[in-house]
């Protein structure tokens, strides 16, 4: 096709977590309608044809909801566009002849597995520490027995929309997971269902986050700017408040 874009890619290649990585140059020609990941698919297909190992990158739903994909494109997680995941980035947003740098998410808490794939299991551990409402199956009351104002439900949804991709951590100069943690804490703090465990949740999740080596927030708000779901830093303010009030009010003197 004539309207293909010719691009120069500089892709981070690293064969295993301990190996020394480096940027490798590739030249690609791609349709402007293709997505960024489809461009990498094509590159990989070419590499495989030449018996070379394809670039490892993770992706799944390719609709911007599963949170699996994520790479740093020209210095920004999920690329230059706002409120989309990498899989939703289309090549028409690049210029013919452009050089594109592709790097993995970088943070101490997200060790590189291979090439562009990183280990984000720390997020799971934070949720396991308290990101839930303790209700056993079958013990719930009728759903409409608990009216919740439309606005509160809507705000809770805004917080719950997080896809756990880790872009916030990747872009934060401190490798902080505050946006991720605060979104979950806020969702439950807003809802009546979340009240019984409210203090304990904030305490436990923050303690786990600190333990896993995430940095602390210095309010640059880069996370909000890069978040594919536009999660607001107001969640972080809310978490700060929740944590402070939990620490002041809870009877937990051990920690």
């Amino acid at each position: 096709m004539n309207n293909n874009l010719n691009l120069k890619l500089k892709v981070w290649r690293q064969s295993n977590p301990k190996a020394v990585g480096a940027f490798v140059d590739y030249n690609v020609s791609v349709s402007p309608d293709a997505s960024f990941l489809e461009m990498l698919d094509e590159l990989n297909n070419e590499l495989e044809k030449n018996n070379q190992e394809p670039v490892v990158f993770e992706s799944d739903c390719r609709e911007g909801i599963c949170g699996t994909c994520g790479m740093v494109i020209n210095g920004e997680p999920h690329g230059p566009l706002r409120k989309i995941a990498t899989c939703q980035l289309h090549m028409r947003n690049f210029k013919d002849g452009q050089t594109i740098w592709v790097e993995p998410f970088r943070a101490k808490a997200f060790p590189i597995i291979k090439d562009l794939a990183v280990d984000r299991s720390a997020f799971d551990k934070i949720i396991q520490a308290g990101g839930y409402i303790s209700v056993n199956t079958g013990s719930a009351q009728d759903a409409n027995a608990l009216p919740i104002s439309k606005d509160i439900a809507s705000d809770a949804f805004d917080s719950a929309a997080c896809i756990g991709c880790g872009a916030c951590v990747a872009t934060c100069k401190n490798g902080s997971a505050m946006l991720f943690v605060s979104a979950k804490v806020t969702q439950f703090a807003l809802l009546p269902q979340g009240q019984p465990e409210r203090q304990q949740r904030a305490e436990a999740m923050v303690a786990k986050m600190d333990e896993l080596g995430f940095g602390s927030c210095s309010n640059t708000y880069a996370c909000e700017a890069e978040c594919p779901k536009g999660i607001s830093v107001r969640n972080i303010a809310k978490l700060n408040h929740e944590y402070l009030s939990a620490k002041c009010k809870s009877t937990n003197v051990e920690a």
Partner: peptide, 13 residues
């Protein structure tokens, strides 16, 4: 915080 982000990106945005 510096220790939480040991390596920075090659391209800075």
């Amino acid at each position: 915080n510096k220790k939480s982000k040991p390596i920075d990106y090659a391209i800075n945005a």
